[in-house]
Amino acid sequence: MSNLSRAELENLAKLARINLTDEELTIFGSQLGLILDSVAKVQEVVNDSIVPMSHALPMTNVFRPDVVGQSLSNSEALAAAPSTQDHRFKVPRILDEE
């Protein structure tokens, strides 16, 4: 393969919510292409009969009883927030004016 195209990279960066500089786009383009070429090797050895492994251990049905426990206080919850108002987290406007 191949470098990732700039458009592909930009789309990935948008999905991942990371602004990339021009320089980063250039470097990552070749590095990611190389890495993806290399990891594509996994496709060589697999077939449909192999069950994918999502968890390290074959355990199932681990549940918690429905019993109320300790919550944080409002001040603990908000202590690290960059911005707050009225006991809530204050976040920048979500959408532009239509």
């Binding site: 993806l36 990891v39 496709q43 697999v46 077939n47 192999i50 069950v51 492994m53």
Partner: peptide, 15 residues
């Protein structure tokens, strides 16, 4: 399927 799915299958093979 090509990447993450295949990688999980390799995991099975390694186990």
């Amino acid at each position: 399927d090509a990447y993450y799915g295949s990688a999980q299958k390799v995991r099975t093979l390694i186990a």
